[in-house]
Computed example of a mutant assay.
Amino acid sequence: MENGSESLTIGAFAKAAGVNVETIRFYQRKGLLLEPEKPYGSIRRYGATDVTRVRFVKSAQRLGFSLDEIADLLKLEDGTHCGEASSVAEHKLRDIQDKLADLQRMENVLTQLVCACHSRRGNVSCPLIASLQRGEESRDAGAV
């Protein structure tokens, strides 16, 4: 990996990238970040390109991309594969939209159950517990 001025120790690299040292090592084990050669009798050094790569990974994670998806995006990082990158992003967008729809269904069911709990009178069993025991609402909400 050619980084120009490779002068950062792993600790300084982690700090510059806004992560901890174990995150750097984890990314190396996952193949998201190359481990530089260790000169005889010295320590590994990292550079600005490494910092940029870790920031890319963290930005992609904040958008919901898995590490495997990020690895695929990193293969396209030269910027000439916009169509392929767009396809990966469109797939992620559909996944997020599906999850949002599931969350909306769960919210609606739980809202109804909470309202039923608040409106119950007397010695009636709890609507939430009864519903969960029947398993009806959890299926309707798309729960796993």
Rank of each mutant, 00 (worst) to 15 (best):
Asn20Ile: 12
Ala116His: 05
Phe65Arg: 06
Val19Ala: 01
Lys38Asn: 11
Cys82Gly: 03
Glu69Thr: 04
Asp95Trp: 02
Arg105Lys: 13
Thr80His: 15
Arg55Tyr: 00
Lys92Trp: 00
Ala48Arg: 14
Gly79Tyr: 01
Val88Cys: 05
Leu8His: 04
Lys15Ile: 03
Glu37Ala: 14
Ala116Lys: 11
Ala85Glu: 08
Arg29Ser: 13
Gly122Ile: 06
Asn123Tyr: 09
Asp102Phe: 07
Ala60Thr: 05
Cys117Glu: 09
Ala17Phe: 05
Ala71Gly: 12
Arg53His: 06
Ala17Thr: 03
Gly122Gln: 03
Gln28Val: 10
Arg94Met: 07
Val114Glu: 08
Val57Met: 04
Ala17Tyr: 03
His81Ala: 14
Arg121Val: 14
Arg120Gln: 10
Val124Tyr: 01
Glu22Ser: 11
Val124Cys: 06
Cys115Lys: 14
Pro36Asn: 07
Gly64His: 07
Arg120Lys: 12
Ala85Pro: 08
Lys58Thr: 13
Thr111Met: 10
Glu22Lys: 14
Thr80Tyr: 08
Gly11Asp: 07
Glu37Tyr: 08
Cys82Val: 10
Ala71Val: 08
Lys75Glu: 11
Asn20Gln: 09
Ala101Val: 09
Ala60Phe: 03
Lys75Val: 05
Ser66Asn: 06
Met106Pro: 00
Asp72Thr: 10
Pro36Ser: 07
Ser42Cys: 04
Val124Arg: 06
Phe56Gly: 00
Leu110Thr: 12
Gln97Phe: 05
Glu69Ile: 02
Thr52Arg: 15
Leu76Met: 09
Val124Gly: 01
Leu113Tyr: 05
Leu100Ser: 02
Glu69Arg: 04
Asn123Pro: 03
Arg121Ser: 12
Gly18Pro: 01
Lys92Tyr: 00
Gln104Thr: 14
Asn108Val: 05
Gly83Met: 07
Gly41Leu: 10
Thr23Lys: 00
Arg94Asn: 09
Leu113Asp: 05
Val57Lys: 02
Arg94Lys: 15
Arg120Ala: 06
Gln61Asn: 08
Thr23Cys: 03
Leu103Glu: 06
Leu93Asp: 02
Asn123Arg: 15
Ala12Asn: 15
Gln97Gly: 08
Cys115Ile: 15
Ala12Ser: 13
Leu63Ile: 07
Ala89Leu: 09
Ser87Leu: 14
Phe65Ile: 07
Gly47Leu: 03
Leu63His: 06
Thr80Ile: 14
Asn108Asp: 11
Glu77Val: 08
Ile70Val: 12
Pro39Phe: 11
Ser66Cys: 06
Val109Cys: 06
Pro36Asp: 08
Arg53Pro: 02
Asp72Asn: 11
Glu77Cys: 10
Asn20Ala: 02
Glu107Leu: 12
Ala101Phe: 10
Glu77Leu: 11
Arg29Lys: 15
Thr49Glu: 13
Lys99Arg: 13
Leu110Ile: 14
Gly83Asn: 10
Glu90Ala: 10
Ser125His: 12
Phe65Asn: 05
Glu37Val: 15
Arg62Tyr: 06
Asp50Arg: 00
Pro39Ala: 13
Ala16His: 02
Ile10Pro: 01
Leu113Met: 13
Val109Thr: 11
Gln104Glu: 14
His91Val: 13
Ala71His: 14
Arg29Leu: 03
Thr80Gln: 15
Asp78Gln: 02
Val54Asn: 01
Leu63Cys: 12
Leu110Ser: 09
Val19Glu: 02
Asp50Tyr: 02
Val21Asp: 02
Ala89Pro: 00
Cys115Asn: 14
Ala17Ile: 04
Pro39Val: 09
Glu6Phe: 00
Gly122Tyr: 02
Asp78Ile: 01
His81Arg: 15
Cys117Gly: 04
Ser125Gln: 11
Thr111Ile: 06
